[in-house]
């Protein structure tokens, strides 16, 4: 088995007295596509935000290539450059064009030259079908277009793993497909991804592992086939049946 990219060990996060994550353990290997499902408030977003330290965990370890990134001496910004994140609300830079959104990290964080950054940006913008819009500002784009740019921006950093937090939840239904198609194409290329989603059918075909979260713990995990067709935990059954009925 190849070396793990991320090992999450006994991860905990509490906001005051509210224990949002309790003892989370899992490991990400290169090429893994992990979908995370669970009820609203179960801690899915918090888990992703802890993984790239947008929230600081209150306990446990996150080992990146064997090194605990929660050590005080660790350079969090440098680590984040290797872990991409795509948000529900896109979070594009409004003062920059589509092209600049994609190149800024490459030139300023990775310190590559501008030509290299623009070529890379064009490559990924083409992949997500947004190359004609390089001169547009985020405010001039539809939700689906913004999300595709956000994915291209994350890809430009050539991350080891890409985190998605409900990438289609803020989109009008007719735009969901275009974004899911982009994520599918990444899956085919072997991109390592962790995807929090409420799109059950999508989670089922795109991922090779599914985690069901319930009240801050991993209540069940397994292959999508196991989890969706033959859930073991009563909570998983309940969640899935409620979802399938809607």
């Amino acid at each position: 088995m190849s070396k793990a990219i991320l090992e999450i060990k006994h991860l905990q996060k509490s906001f005051g007295k509210n224990n949002v994550l309790r003892d989370i353990d899992f490991t990400i290997y290169p090429g893994d596509i992990t979908s995370i499902i669970g009820a609203s408030g179960s801690g899915k977003s918090t888990l992703l935000r802890c993984i790239n330290v947008l929230e600081r965990p209150t306990g446990g370890e996150i080992l990146h290539n064997g090194k605990n990134i929660l050590d005080k001496s660790n350079n969090v910004a440098a680590y984040r450059a290797k872990v991409g994140m795509v948000f529900q609300s896109f979070n594009l830079f409004d003062n920059m064009t589509v092209l600049e959104n994609c190149t800024i990290g490459v030139t300023k964080v990775l310190k590559k030259d501008k030509k290299y950054a623009e070529d890379l940006a064009m490559k990924y913008l083409t992949q997500v079908g947004m190359s004609p819009y390089i001169n547009a500002k985020p405010k001039q784009l539809s939700g689906g277009q913004k999300q595709r740019v956000a994915i291209a921006r994350a890809l430009c950093m050539q991350p080891e793993v890409l985190l998605f937090d409900e990438p289609t939840s803020a989109l009008d239904p007719e735009m969901v497909g275009e974004v899911l198609d982009v994520i599918r194409s990444l899956a085919e290329e072997g991109m390592t991804m962790i995807i929090v989603t409420h799109e059950m059918a999508f989670a089922r075909d795109v991922s090779n592992r599914t985690i069901f979260m319930d009240k801050g713990v991993i209540a069940e995990e397994g292959t999508p086939q196991q989890l969706f067709t033959n859930p073991q935990n009563p909570r998983t059954k309940e969640f899935l049946s409620r979802f399938m009925n809607n």
């Binding site: 984040r80 594009l92 964080v109």
Partner: peptide
């Protein structure tokens, strides 16, 4: 605040986030 998170997520430092994203706006 989302833009600050977007900047952090691609590895920008607080200083870079301010300089390139927040202050111009």
């Amino acid at each position: 605040k989302g833009q600050t998170e977007g900047a952090k997520a691609i590895g920008m430092t607080h200083f870079q986030t301010m300089l390139y994203v927040i202050l111009p706006q």
